[in-house]
Design a protein around this nucleic acid. Structure first.
Lengths: 236, 236
DNA sequence: GACTTTTTCCGAATATTTTTCGATTTTATT
DNA sequence: AATAAAATCGAAAAATATTCGGAAAAAGTC
């Protein structure tokens, strides 16, 4: 029994690590869009459009932003923009991808196979808040306009946003195995609690710039939630 | 000392109750808009517009919805609609009010002065989820389009949405006095944790109709958060 | 009840913004 | 250099939001 116990966790840990790596790689692949443009000039234009759109959408919001402004900001004609994106909506929904893959990649780089799910969770939540602070225009667009939008479901973006919470759910499952999250709780509920709390902090900051230090607030919120989950798990 | 102790809580409880009543009444007054129209016919038209707008915005989202469709649905001409609301945006931002005041009022009616803050908190969170389920078109508009919008700040709606979280913060403060919320925690952080968790549950339901039973999920989430806060407070 | 004033409503015109189209220019290929 | 493919643009069309002047309906006055 003792020998079994000493072997079981190891093999399961290996399996988990593989699962985990596969999940992260999948997520990164799904969120990475390589350009289908043939000419360099065109790929440059593509980037100019995305940059301009990020600025204009971030400033005016999707609804108020005008295609003509974005085109002007990108230094091209309005009709050229339509050569790249079929509509304003399409363009808006393309933007979150650009940074999401970068975020997922830097999260992968910030974690190692030796880390526990608890440690990974803390890093993930902390990085989410910090990334929003660093890329506030992008975050504004994602958290305040796109994430909650009714129509995300009609775009390829849906999967990428789902991936964000899928990672949390996976960590919740591992947290149950590690024993710091109660096994008899609903993992979707737990994930909602974690994601909701951190997102609320980010959204409040985006809207009111309060609390002043989002990085600090993100860390504190993340630590507090994890601590509370541990206390819950310690209950008999 | 014993007599003081028996008096102190009572007087403080009375003061709290008054504060609380004043807060709730303020909130209800702020969220109630009485029509400035002179004729009955006009007040009827006003309601028809709001109902039509709720349906169309709920179905198509603010950005895709067309004023002409709303006017047709309300059985009036497009130009008449402009007699009532200056722009599409103005109309969209007016809708949440209509139900918010009703929600606040039914919350007031569901609570009594004898209830503890803990009980009130549970009722408030539970009712929030349940109200969203009952008025899903309205909730879609509020939670998915308006609440997170960058531009709410420019409208009178801001105050009403803030009131929603103000009530939570007030209950958090009372919860600290009652002793089931740690006094050495940040009340804004605690409020964000509570509001974020419940909202995330509501938003997920609005987008995916999961979990199936929002009422049940709302109650469970509310009870769980409160229980977790109690455990946190019980820690030395 | 006829007259006047106010309020409400609508059709037609205007303004703004998105989207399409055909022609032109630039780049890659042979 | 000739040809094909890709990318760009200006001008026109389509879709939508918004304004305006006057007609219809209701309310007030004598």
């Amino acid at each position: 029994m003792a020998s079994e116990a000493s072997i079981e966790p190891v093999s399961s840990k290996t399996a988990e690590a593989t699962d985990w790596d596969r999940l992260i790689e999948d997520v990164i692949v799904r969120s990475t869009r390589e350009s289908e443009r043939k000419q360099d000039r065109s790929r440059r234009t593509e980037k100019q459009i995305l940059n301009a759109a990020l600025r204009v959408f971030g400033r005016d919001g999707i609804s108020r932003a005008r295609i003509a402004d974005i085109a002007a900001e990108a230094g091209i004609s309005t009709s050229t923009l339509y050569e790249y994106y079929a509509s304003k909506e399409d363009l808006a929904y393309e933007i979150p991808m650009t940074h999401l893959s970068e975020f997922f990649a830097s999260f992968r780089d910030a974690t190692t196979a030796e880390m526990t799910a608890r440690e990974k969770m803390l890093v993930y939540l902390t990085m989410s808040a910090d990334y929003a602070r660093e890329h506030s225009e992008w975050a504004r667009l994602l958290y305040l306009e796109i994430w909650p939008s009714v129509f995300v479901g009609e775009t390829g973006l849906q999967a990428n946003i789902d991936d964000f919470t899928r990672i949390i759910r996976h960590l919740v499952e591992q947290g149950m195995e590690e024993g710091w999250i109660r096994r008899d709780t609903n993992k979707y509920e737990t994930a909602a609690l974690i994601v909701g709390s951190v997102n609320q902090t980010i959204i409040t900051w985006l809207l009111y710039r309060k609390p002043k230090n989002l990085t600090k607030a993100g860390v504190e919120m993340a630590e507090r939630i994890i601590r509370m989950l541990e206390l819950e798990a310690a209950q008999t």
